[in-house]
Computed example of a mutant assay.
Amino acid sequence: MKNNRSGQAEPLTKEEFWQVYEALQSHHHRLIFALCWFTTERPGAILKLTVAAVYEQPRKPRGTIVIPAWSRKDRQTREVPVSRKLKGILSQYIHPPTGWLFPSPLDEEQCLSFSAYQKALTRAFRILGFSGYSTYSTRRGSITHLSRQGLSIKNIQAISGHKSLTCLQRYIEVSPAEREAAIALL
């Protein structure tokens, strides 16, 4: 569990994801949060998305979101298919005509800062009484959710963009009940 910025973030369940989504006060924070969940991407890369990477034309999302190599930890470009739910969320968002999808309110030439998003998310977690969660809870939660739905680890790797299965496995939470159920199979 995440404690004072140490350890791994608690993974969000799908139900917790929607609770936090509703608790976020601004539309752009909600969209950042949704993009992190539905793309399994790191928030730092989501904050650096441009309008052209997500939208074909005003309020018309692309079929895939292009997450450029320069914004990602592994320096590999990812193209992530847009799910029906994410498409609905994207269609409702009023985005800037060009440039950053999430421009800084202080300087439109810059994207929204990680700390601004982190503060909004921390506030929502606090309102809901969630502890041990962080900006990575969406990534860990969506990956864990896919695993619990029975997707193969190779499929999850392809979706999440992890180069290494070892790195990917750190994101998948295994509950005590799941361990007991596994042992019962022996």
Rank of each mutant, 00 (worst) to 15 (best):
V66M: 14
S71I: 11
E41N: 12
V54I: 12
P58R: 13
S91R: 10
H29M: 11
S26K: 12
V82L: 10
A45F: 04
P97V: 08
L31S: 06
L31M: 14
Y55L: 08
K73Q: 13
A45E: 00
E56D: 13
P58A: 15
L86A: 01
K87C: 07
I32C: 02
T77V: 02
Y93F: 03
V80T: 01
Q92G: 13
P96L: 10
Q25S: 12
T98D: 01
V51Q: 05
I94C: 04
V80D: 03
E22Y: 14
R72D: 00
Y55R: 15
K85H: 10
L49M: 15
G99M: 08
L86P: 07
P81Y: 09
A53P: 01
R84E: 13
L49Y: 11
Q57R: 09
P97E: 13
P43W: 01
R75A: 11
L90D: 08
T77S: 06
K60F: 01
H27M: 06
L31K: 13
Y93W: 07
K87G: 01
G99H: 03
L49K: 04
K60I: 15
V54G: 01
W70I: 09
D74N: 15
F33Q: 02
C36E: 05
I89M: 07
S91D: 03
I65T: 12
L24S: 08
Q76F: 00
K85Q: 13
P68C: 04
E41H: 03
S26Q: 10
I65S: 05
K48C: 10
T40F: 11
R62Q: 09
D74Y: 01
I89K: 03
L31P: 12
L24M: 06
L24G: 11
Q25A: 14
R42C: 04
I94P: 00
I32Q: 06
I32D: 04
K48Y: 04
P43G: 01
T40N: 09
G99F: 02
T98S: 12
L47H: 12
P97S: 13
S91A: 12
I94L: 09
R72Q: 11
A34Q: 15
Y55P: 14
A23R: 08
R42W: 05
P96Y: 08
I46W: 05
P68Q: 14
T50A: 09
G99C: 05
I65V: 15
R72H: 04
L47S: 14
Y55C: 08
K85E: 15
I94Q: 02
I67H: 10
L47C: 12
S91P: 11
I32S: 04
P43M: 00
T50L: 14
H28M: 12
Y21S: 07
P96E: 12
W70V: 13
C36N: 06
I46F: 08
V82A: 04
F38I: 07
F38N: 01
T50N: 11
A53F: 09
L49I: 15
G99T: 02
R62E: 02
R30K: 09
V80Y: 05
T77G: 02
S26V: 14
S91G: 00
R75G: 02
V51Y: 03
H27C: 05
W37P: 00
K73D: 06
